[in-house]
């Protein structure tokens, strides 16, 4: 098991954001974590990445507790987050953004190869490789963020709301990309408010509400589960 979260809780000051969450991520799948805004999904991802300390429970990477690890050390263990709101480096060029993604690697020849591969995957980025990333459109910035995440050659890609703020057509592309990334062998943990689309592509899914996991099961089953439908899909 690459990543295992057991009975994890965390709080901002006195406000508990996540309570007793357990998530298992086995190699090769797409796991979705869906729920309304404020349910604690992003907090869970940030705890996995080491950006927020956890209060109780444990997060284990390859069976080892990650509690003492700093964010960059977690990234170096192959658990890579593409953060919410993309958070690309707006004053760096598109190419520099991709190279930043590979910052934890030292295999220079393979990095250059991966960069060229990203330009094949996202031809728009190749046209704009020297352009400052802050001047790109929202969809293009999501491409940069995704490509940047992939440049780390992650074992698990944590994607936080990749569809946020994008036009419906672009959202389709983003989800196609996620499936392609997964088909190429990367495990994906997808956090989404857009529950229907996320459940459609997820092999396994968790539904979060008020900081707790309320449902879990195969994505296709949850997509037609009447509780999920009534809460999130209307």
């Amino acid at each position: 098991m690459i990543l295992e979260i057991e009975n994890m809780s965390l709080a901002y000051g006195n406000i508990e954001a996540v309570r007793g969450v357990s998530i298992k991520i086995v190699d090769g799948g797409i796991v979705a974590l869906v729920g309304a805004n404020g349910a604690g999904k992003s907090s869970t991802l940030n705890a996995i990445s080491g950006l927020i300390p956890i209060k109780n429970g444990s997060i284990r990477i390859d069976g080892q507790s990650s509690a003492a690890l700093k964010p960059h050390e977690i990234t170096r263990r192959g658990i890579v987050q593409v953060p919410e709101g993309r958070r690309i480096f707006g004053r760096l060029s598109v190419e520099e953004n991709l190279l930043m993604g590979a910052f934890s690697r030292t295999d220079h020849a393979a990095i250059a190869e991966d960069r060229d591969h990203m330009f094949e995957l996202f031809p728009r980025l190749k046209e704009r490789r020297r352009q400052v990333a802050g001047t790109l459109s929202g969809g293009e910035q999501q491409m940069v963020a995704t490509a940047r995440g992939l440049m780390a050659r992650p074992r698990v890609l944590l994607m936080d709301e990749p569809s946020m703020g994008l036009a419906p057509l672009v959202v389709e592309q983003v989800f196609d990309t996620i499936q392609a990334i997964n088909a190429a062998g990367t495990t994906v943990l997808l956090v989404e408010q857009n529950a229907l689309m996320a459940l459609e592509i997820a092999h396994h899914a968790y539904v979060m509400e008020h900081g707790e996991i309320v449902l879990e099961g195969p994505g296709a089953e949850l997509a037609v589960d009447e509780r999920v439908v009534s809460i999130y899909l209307g």
Partner: peptide
Amino acid sequence: TRMGMAMRAVSEDKAAASLMGVDV
């Protein structure tokens, strides 16, 4: 240089840079 690029990235967004594997 790599470290120079990392410095520019940290200047823009410390948390995002640490997610890239940069030791802030």
